[in-house]
Design a protein around this nucleic acid. Structure first.
Lengths: 171, 171
DNA sequence: TATTGTTATACTCTATAACTATA
DNA sequence: TATAGTTATAGAGTATAACAATA
């Protein structure tokens, strides 16, 4: 296959080449590159201007959506490990962007809400994030966006049941 | 909006709620969660059994596809920073999975290829990775997969031209 | 005993900057 | 001067384990 006598064909055999994976066409790779590019571009939008990290943004977004949540609930909702949430919450509380209200019925946990200052920053970020998402999907029809959404949901369901799972669920 | 007199309505106003972003429906977030789950599950497949990291897998995949590439070319092809490539290459060379062949016409760079040992591991990983990708997209029709592929390409093109760019291009 | 949350620690991936050796 | 590649260093993001407080 590879070479005959001293021929200069130190090449991968036909069989091996057939067994190769084209990285550019490999779905896990493509998803990863796309998501990384998107995340980093978006993180720049709120990172540069407000000094907010991705986990911090997710905490704010969750509180913006539900007003009040415990750290545990935030982790479940935004797919973050409890230590990641804990540190994001600590950083936001330190900057007085969120506040803790103890749960008198279970003193282990605390309800978290945005302070007015946090709300203000959140309300500044939202239109920027929204604009980013709109620019991103500009050119895609409503139908295409819906299809993409459905595909993402189905892939998410699939991967949750694949192997090691890992799951990013909280411990 | 928020509360009248001492009423117990410490609630986000209707205006603010309308301005909120639903994380679960926010495309950048969804892409990121999906890609993370997929990447980590796949990385487990080759990480656990062969001690190969994601950057190392990308180097192997690139060499499997093209047989011979410089570190710079690998970085361009697989969207990795030159320092990431450099370390992955060093680790693979250390384990004797890839070999360097100096370019006599430009001694700054070297052509990289897999050793037989590297080939062997690569050829073990490929069917696992392929099986993973197939399981992942199981249930999607050929048409749907093609649509997904097209959408990813278009989003990739879009994000490349958005803002800070970042680009993950090599310096 | 189990759970919420914190902290110490470490690992992966990425990135900047400073360097070398070549060109 | 510019480029290929290495190394030191640092920053995110994530994870495990050990812990305190509470249930």
């Amino acid at each position: 296959m590879s070479s005959v006598a001293g021929k200069i064909t130190p090449d991968v055999s036909a069989r091996d080449r057939a067994a190769a994976i084209e990285l550019e066409g490999f779905l896990p790779y493509r998803l990863n590159v796309l998501a990384t590019l998107v995340s980093q571009s978006l993180a720049k939008v709120y990172g540069d201007r407000f000094g907010i990290s991705i986990p911090e943004w997710r905490v704010l977004a969750t509180l913006g959506q539900f007003r009040e949540k415990t750290a545990r609930e935030i982790g479940l909702h935004s797919h973050m490990h409890k230590t990641t949430v804990s540190r994001a919450v600590a950083a936001l509380a330190e900057r007085n962007l969120i506040a803790r209200r103890p749960n008198r019925e279970d003193m282990r946990e605390a309800f978290l809400t945005m302070t007015p200052k946090g709300q203000a920053i959140y309300l500044e970020i939202v239109p920027l994030a929204r604009a980013f998402a709109e620019q991103l999907s500009e050119g895609l029809s409503r139908d295409e966006l819906q299809v993409l959404d459905g595909l993402i949901s189905r892939l998410m369901g699939k991967v949750a049941h694949l192997e090691g799972g890992n799951g990013i669920e909280n411990t």
